[in-house]
Design a binder for these strands. Sequence first.
RNA 1: AGCGAGGUAGGGUAGCAUGGAGUGCCCGCCGGGCUCAUAACCCGGAGAUCGGUGGUUCAAAUCCACCUCUCGCUACCA
Length: 495
Amino acid sequence: MPYVNAKPHIGHALECVQTDAIARFRKISGDDVYLTTGADENSLKNVQAAEKLGISTEELCKKNAGLFRELDDRIGLSYDIFVRSSVDAGHLKTTNALWDMCNKKGDIYKKEYSGLYCVGCEVFYTETELEGGMCPEHRTRPEVVHEENYFFRLSKYQDVIEKLVESNAVEIMPDAKKHEVLGFVRSGLEDFSISRSIKRSHGWGIPVPGDDSQIIYVWFDALGMYLTGAGFQSDNAKFEKLWPADMHVIGKGVIRFHAVYWLAMLLSAGLELPKSLLVHGYVTSNGQKMSKSIGNIVDPFEVIGKYGEDATRYYLLKEVSTFQDGDFSEKIMKELINNELVGNIGNFVNRTLSFIYSKFGGSIKLDEISEDGKDILNKVHMLASESEECMKQSQMNLALLRVLEISNLGNQYFQAREPWNLIKKDEESAEGVLLVCANISRELGILIYPHMPEASEKLLGYLNEKPQAFKNAEKIIKEFNIGEPKILFKKIDDA
RNA sequence: AGCGAGGUAGGGUAGCAUGGAGUGCCCGCCGGGCUCAUAACCCGGAGAUCGGUGGUUCAAAUCCACCUCUCGCUACCA
């Protein structure tokens, strides 16, 4: 769930695509999947961004939330609900309820907070963040500000959280991030402020229940969006069924809030904890960090518009490994499309289907698969089950490597058996070769569904099938009737 | 500084837990083949002291120690 002070960049698309691939994989594997997303709008950053643009905060949020939702749609995110934290009535109920539950537990108390506050940035700085005692942005000396805030007793939950994370009761993937969290927790947890004065927050956000002078800290409210999406306080039957969440997919910059604050808040409120957190990396642009000043922010809409949904998804899933940072460049995008999607996967499928269509009138049928055909199919099945294993571990990049190996095997087989020569003297042998290739194509169609749903549906459609569980890929089909095939992926011509 | 993660051919990446010829994949480069296919595809080749040093072992990219370089995290900032 992104916060929406600016329009989406390619990194947001990464999160969408990773989440969606996992969701789709689980769905076809038979799981009942419910995917929530939305827009985190109650942040002071949004107020500041709106001021800069000279529009109201409401307007900014509406506009940007709309863009994020549009991105979700255009990248093919199969979400079930989109929550907007500043307008959805259900979310207000969630936040108030969550506050009350923590308060009843005695975990919320009032305390004076004093810190070094930069008026320009409107944020508090720690001494380590300052450069020579000055604000790094404005080069001014921050003033010492005292303010009464509500605090949350995070310290109380240090031991519990350490045990939960260590034992994988809440699994944090990858391990490196889990270690980071454990290191942080073990260094000692301090209570943190969960409210801001109404002045400092410009009145934007959700008021503290029973105290209009304070606004709830944005994270306390934003994390609750997971509950809102699951029907908390608004649809008990739904919430019973959906909560706890199986997984939160988050960027590496917000681990602490999810792996520490969020767990503590849920523990305090007496709610169940999410089962896992998947932490992804960031996307760089031509090797550099994306930033406004460099002007190298990659617009996902442009990318999708130019290369299409599937190719964009493929890039983000294959080239960016799930748990690490990755780079985006158009040069690599073109290489991936032309060499892997077009040259490898697309070409194999196309040469298979068009051969069947033009030489066999679209229909092939045999009772037996040849021995060498069985060999190749066995290898393909092996790779397919490896691919499934990778998907179970959310390693989409590795799953796709197996897919490429499969179509590569297919191309080799096609080449070695030369059905275009074979058909001249022994039509049945040629038919046998194509039967094997058609089976491989079908298997490919099933395996690429989580990554490239459009191409998958198209390919399987030619074979009169639909996306389905990976385990069905092993079934060997002895008869195919196909219509006229069209190209799956379009080659990029460099003009 | 402390804690954590990593350094594998020109670029990327897998392998490391359960040591066994540098093994694989994607691209780039060089040479050949083929024509069913989107001038696609297939085969062959060059290219690596697997960050460095030392150790354990019959055997180390893989285990251990030290060194070096890179990158994260060290809170009320999303």
